[in-house]
């Protein structure tokens, strides 16, 4: 098996008496987009900061494309691109100056390919103070990619962006992935994680509660699939439980059940409609969302 791009073994980080990261293990494959999810204070940013070499772990081992972030900080800077959750450039620094500066520090010439690729040609002469939040994020993303890193760490990259800015940044992350760069993404946005990530880990209180593809994580929950149906003449009224399917109620002509065995319930319902000489106007089967799974995990933890 190929060496993982990022390997975390037994990572522990404490701030005084509180443990921010409590012995997590993660492996992220090369070229993968990996999402780190969790409520505030779950330890996502601390984990990323340990990988970036910005925090000293209390225990555990870390490896980012063959580098130990504690020992090989210089080499790490060439291999790891980072967009921090909160960062800035000097207000009076122009975008072209920022790119020239970072390029010079990596021993490279200007990167017109990145400037064109990210559509920031029009921003080059603007000072940092004149940029919108979305434009700043794009500039920081370009800066993180200047050294052609193997791994890109993005901490809450779309926080505070409008819908258009978010979609644009998603496209840019996909473009980065298509070039074989491993992306490690911390986010609160479940839709973003589902849309972009090959695998995700949900962190709660410094531990990894669940890890897998978004579909695996969602399926691993106890959540039932939602089945909603509307018929022309209301032949299924007044509803009621059917086998393992729990009847939730009716709303706007739709009757709703929650069940594990979708096929059995749908077959049964369609049979009843046919017998009653009724017709199905709409039938919706909605599996539990990642957000519901996330809330289930968080609320389960709070209930403990």
């Amino acid at each position: 098996m190929a060496e993982p791009a990022v390997s975390i073994r037994g990572l522990v980080k404490r701030y005084g008496p509180s443990t921010a990261v409590d012995g997590i293990d993660l492996e992220i494959g090369r070229g993968e987009v990996f999402g780190l999810l969790g409520p505030n204070g779950a330890g996502k940013t601390t984990t990323l900061e340990c990988l970036e070499g910005m925090r000293e772990p209390d225990a555990g081992s870390l490896c980012v494309v063959g580098c130990d972030p504690r020992a090989d900080r210089r080499v790490l800077r060439e291999k790891l691109g980072v967009q921090l959750q909160s960062s800035a450039l000097p207000d009076s620094m122009r975008v072209d100056e920022a790119i020239a500066l970072i390029c010079a520090w990596h021993g490279m010439g200007m990167r017109p390919d990145l400037i064109e690729g990210f559509g920031i040609t029009g921003l080059l002469r603007k000072q940092y103070r004149e940029l919108s939040t979305g434009q700043r994020r794009r500039v920081h993303l370009v800066l993180a990619l200047v050294s052609n890193p193997d791994v890109l760490v993005l901490d809450e990259p779309t926080a505070g962006l409008d819908v258009q800015g978010r979609a644009q940044l998603h496209d840019e992350i996909r473009a980065v992935k298509s070039q074989g760069v491993t992306v490690l993404l911390a986010t609160h946005d479940m839709a973003e994680a589902e849309e972009l990530c090959d695998r995700i880990a949900i962190m709660i209180r410094g531990r990894v509660a669940v890890c897998g593809t978004p579909a695996q994580v969602t399926a691993a929950g106890s959540g039932r699939t939602r089945v909603r149906i509307r018929t022309s003449r209301g032949s299924l009224l007044p509803g009621g439980d059917r086998g393992d399917a729990v009847f939730v109620g009716d709303d706007d002509g739709y009757l709703e059940w929650r069940c594990h065995d979708v096929a059995a319930l749908v077959t049964q319902l369609l049979g009843r409609v046919q017998v009653a000489d009724d017709a199905v106007e709409d039938l919706r089967v909605e599996r539990p969302s990642l957000e519901e799974r996330f809330l289930e995990l968080v609320e389960g933890d709070e209930g403990r």
Binding site: E52, M54, R77, E78, L80, V82, L84, S86, S87, A88, L89, P90, L101, I102, W105, H106, H140, L143, A144, V146, S147
Partner: peptide, 20 residues
């Protein structure tokens, strides 16, 4: 003032992760 501002705003951290 500029040194304090760079620390407060996260500029120093942004520079550091970009190799400066």
């Amino acid at each position: 003032a500029p040194i304090v501002r760079m620390r407060e705003s996260g500029t120093l951290r942004a520079f550091e992760v970009n190799g400066i």
